[in-house]
Design a binder for these strands. Structure first.
Lengths: 373, 373
DNA sequence: GCGCTGCCTGTAAGCGCATACATCACTCTG
DNA sequence: CAGAGTGATGTATGCGCTTACAGGCAGCGC
């Protein structure tokens, strides 16, 4: 807000001085009708050049900014797409660990924002409160043309309502069983394939024989798929594993990962020769714990992660993991939404599986193939 | 979009079937007027419980979602705040380094989103294209109640227009000289103090005598302030430094940091006993380069950064740095905006300087005081 | 000179909601 | 039992823009 200001004698500064100018003001000043003003912005070519200039000049002088609301209302579209992502962690406890925990969402946000910008859309983001306030949806959904939803951040019933009004795409976490969700567009990564290939690498190339998979208590579809890939690879290689992960964690945090490593080290019997974690954060936590215990990775035990977050590359030893194209996933989400928007939602639901790639790094005994930087 | 679907014989699925229901539809179904429907959402207590239930039931049955646009238009507010941040890097070149480069913005986004959510606002984000498309502003500014702007992402003239309509807060990068910007709310961190304290620690506690400061070619206000802190600390300790950084980099990336380290190592004369980098990314790059050269940090040379990004803690040796409360900065930005919004913008412009803290870690020879996790 | 065509601009009707104001049904006092 | 007060609801208007649709006015061929 601009001050009336320097010149003004008193505390006038920093207050909104004038009501925001509207098309009417601009029209009057330029000596045209409001329709012409609107056309200058919407379809410039349909206005004579000289008129256009006059309007733009008037707008500039008045500091006119079109009201997005009025525009949206009249044109029945907002030029905004929304993203709902999970808010891990307690907003109050701003731990450092939490900082890294959200990298996943960050990348998707970035990807979506970029692609959205390319298409002339802006991005509205909202974390789903863990409490699950219903307000969110009404709030966000009412303001966007399309909606991307990270798995299980929005109750199915709300999704159903929203999807009746606008395109919705689900991110990560495959379609759930429910018939309804089958009809949403959907993007996921090749979790099973990735874990399968990574595991195969450990078994075949590094001769691992007693791998331990560390999953979660409440299996997300992603984690489930990863475990499936792990099991399959073991079966293929004739390595014995149970139908259950060696360990199930409550949350996929560094702390939990460290705890898991501790538990596995202390449990009776032979130490596994590889810890296969369901994500990078936990693997990094394990790395720390093993270092603390004086165990060498990968000599005493191999450690692998999943996700390919930036820090997986930066820890020492660098973490062997499965890289997910997270930024790309965000971009794809936007692309899908935009396509639907342009085609008025016609067409079969799309389900896209993005390929992943195994990053073989030091924590499994491979030399990094790419330079560190 | 819900399919008409399973049942339908043909490609009807995945199309928006019905026009979105409005207050009128809900009102009719519930047998009330639209005003009552509106009141159910805006001021529930002003409607008799039985009526309210009827309305809500009708809304549920119809899948009613209030139009944010209409709401905003009628109430002259959107419930959304905006953030404009820089888009580092080429969107096409999705290098891994770029991933880490944007951590800064990510954290601010997170902080703003959280605080916004607490206050019932949503967050609209838009990176400023480096090309500097003017479209952005009209697009975003027309849709929000308040606007946070990371330093130098929006041209001053546009800011001036926007700030006439709504509260604007500048983030990081102190007020510029221009009189106009002096009147915006503003949040920065204690760059100078932080660098001063860090430098003092090196000089006094570690006996550093030949520190080299590595800055940037085009000095941002932040980087400038950091260098000022560095110089001041040197002067205080009676250590000789020039008025110029030892080196100026084009960009604050890991590559550049590595290159800087190489240059400093190869330059004639005695090796500096400490590399003081203007941010963490460059310091991390230097760490790698020094490792490659077989030099030990901190024994051969001390390295420090600035920012306190998560990976500063994760590299080995862990990086001594100045922690900026980036998430907090985002939160503060939101708080400031919300306060202005509630007070109709009254009051003097606020300039808040957030405190920083020095993280003494292994790269300066200190043991980490906090456990790794 | 006339009607026609095209280009440019104006007129007017909403878009879906919030809200001031009016109305109505009651309850409460005196 | 009239009049005032109270709570619940309806009526009507307008928020600022987009967009059919309807002119007005030039240039064209006849």
């Amino acid at each position: 807000m601009v001050l009336s200001a320097r010149a003004a004698p008193t505390g006038e500064r920093n207050r909104i001085v004038t009501a925001a100018p509207t098309v009417y003001d601009v029209a009057e000043r330029a000596g045209v009708s409001i329709a012409t003003v609107s056309r200058v912005y919407r379809t410039p070519d349909s206005v004579r050049a000289s008129t256009r200039e006059r309007v733009l000049a008037a707008a500039r002088e008045l500091g006119y900014v079109p009201s997005g609301n009025a525009r949206g209302l009249a044109s029945r579209s907002t030029g905004v797409i929304g993203l709902c992502f999970p808010d891990y962690g307690d907003p109050a406890a701003d731990t450092e660990d939490d900082d890294t925990a959200m990298l996943y969402s960050d990348q998707i946000i970035r990807g979506m924002e970029r692609a959205a910008r390319r298409h002339g859309y802006a991005l509205l983001i909202a974390a789903s409160l863990k409490g699950g306030a219903a307000g969110l949806v009404a709030k966000v959904a009412g303001r966007v043309d399309g909606f991307a939803v990270m798995a299980r951040t929005v109750p199915t019933e709300e999704l159903e309502v929203i999807s009746r009004r606008m395109p919705v795409v689900m991110l990560a976490g495959p379609r759930e069983g429910t018939a309804f969700l089958d009809h949403l567009d959907h993007i996921e990564v090749a979790n099973e394939d990735g874990q399968h290939e990574l595991t195969r690498h450990l078994l075949v190339d590094h001769g691992v024989r007693r791998p331990a998979y560390i999953g979660t208590v409440e299996e997300s579809p992603d984690v489930q798929a990863r475990f499936d890939g792990f099991r399959l690879a073991c079966r293929d290689a004739g390595v014995e594993t149970g139908d259950e992960p060696a360990l199930r964690l409550d949350r996929l945090t560094q702390e939990e990962g460290a705890r898991a490593a501790a538990r596995l080290c202390e449990s009776p019997g032979e130490l596994p020769d590889a810890f296969v974690f369901a994500n990078d954060q936990t693997a990094v936590g394990a790395l720390r714990e093993l270092e603390r215990r004086g165990l060498s990775v990968p000599d005493d035990v191999i450690v692998t992660g999943f996700d390919g977050i930036p820090l997986s590359r930066l820890v020492r030893p660098a973490l062997t993991t499965v890289r997910q194209p997270m930024v790309r996933m965000g971009e794809e989400a936007t692309e899908l939404l935009v396509r639907r928007l342009n085609s008025k939602g016609e067409g079969e639901p799309v389900s896209r599986v993005l390929p992943v790639s195994v990053a073989r790094r030091a924590s499994c005994g491979c030399t990094e193939t790419t330079p560190t930087l």
